[in-house]
Design a protein around this nucleic acid. Structure first.
Lengths: 193, 193
DNA sequence: AATTTATTGGAATAGGCGTTCTAATCGCTT
DNA sequence: AAGCGATTAGAACGCCTATTCCAATAAATT
């Protein structure tokens, strides 16, 4: 009976992800979103709820996709140095899609909203935990394959990988040059030696 | 002849620094600033100009103070590992002044505004260059004192110090625990070995 | 083809924003 | 002591915000 939507909620959400990613929460108005998503204002409220709900869904979608991608990369490479290098390269490429860096939506949001919204903070924390878990598992795997000296502490290394990932993303805002960023990745990975 | 100000422009600016640092540019309204600085609205416009100018001055003041502090720390310690450790500890303490982390005003602003305001971006870039220069000089000093192997590349290490500093600050938003953050500092500094 | 019902476009609403303006206040100099 | 002039308090301005509402539209079932 009812009329059908003439837009894809998933595609529209992806556009919302890109806009929030580029501009942040506060700098993005509902009018911006109406223009960017190409759908009606009422359709937006009807499909996603208000601005907060839309943002939360956008963040969740981004984090899910990013985590999946990282996981796929790490599982693909059996050499952990290579795997981590390609993972960081993926982060860098993802940040530098445009000529100026958009950094990473997760990091941007942590900086902008972690102290402002409890709900958002929890979503970010869950994503961080997932990343740390992946890193721990991957490092453990590397240790079992004798790619990591036995005296190296997994936990400390996992933490540093996450911290460095955040650093790479935020620093890329002022230094959007892939070669330089990747060079610091190479240098960082010597902590595994 | 004229009536004198009955507030200290420097003290008021410091309050503006703290508010912008805590909340960011977009989330801070002029009304918030009027309340926080404890001075009249017209006095604010008269002394600092509009919101943009006030923010720019706040950022400049913060960056100048921070750079000075870091410089003092590095000059004080003749052992570069010790100097860098204390510097990172200063960053962490500065981020964790409240129970939840405010990160670093410089990093926060890079993430929030680098793509939005050319003037702000230039101020951030100048600060970044200054930090890189300090790191290069300090590492060079360490090399001259045989605290750093000759084959180590100064430039790559300097870049990684800045990138990691940004990472430490943004990651502290979701992990405001000093011991954990400092542990990853210790691990990072093994890249000097 | 008629009916139903969610979607759609766009106006309307209430409130907050940054900024400006108008008086009234008050400190310094002469 | 007189008066000049910047500082002050707070109202006022126009714009933009997020959200809601109201017809009008259009797709799927009967």
């Amino acid at each position: 009976m009812p009329r059908t939507k003439n837009f894809s909620p998933e595609e529209a959400l992806e556009k919302a992800v890109n806009l929030f990613w580029e501009q942040g929460y506060h700098a993005t108005s509902m009018q911006n979103l109406v223009d960017a998503l190409g759908i009606n204002r009422a359709s937006m409220y009807g499909t996603y709820g208000g601005k907060d709900e839309l943002f939360a869904q956008a963040l969740e979608a981004y984090q899910a996709a990013e985590t999946k991608e990282v996981s796929a990369i790490l599982y693909y490479y059996t050499d952990i140095r290579q795997g981590l290098y390609v993972m960081f390269e993926y982060f860098v490429d993802s940040a530098l899609k445009e000529e100026s860096s958009n950094s990473c939506f997760h990091v941007n949001t942590a900086v902008e909203l972690a102290n402002e919204s409890k709900a958002i903070k929890e979503s970010l924390e869950a994503c961080r935990e997932l990343h740390l878990k992946m890193y721990r598992t991957y490092l453990e795997f590397g240790k079992s394959k004798a790619q990591l000296a036995n005296h190296k502490e997994i936990e400390g290394l996992a933490q540093i990988l996450y911290n460095f990932q955040c650093g790479l993303m935020s620093a890329s805002k002022l230094n959007p040059r892939k070669e330089q960023l990747m060079k610091s990745v190479s240098t960082l990975l010597t902590i595994l030696d």
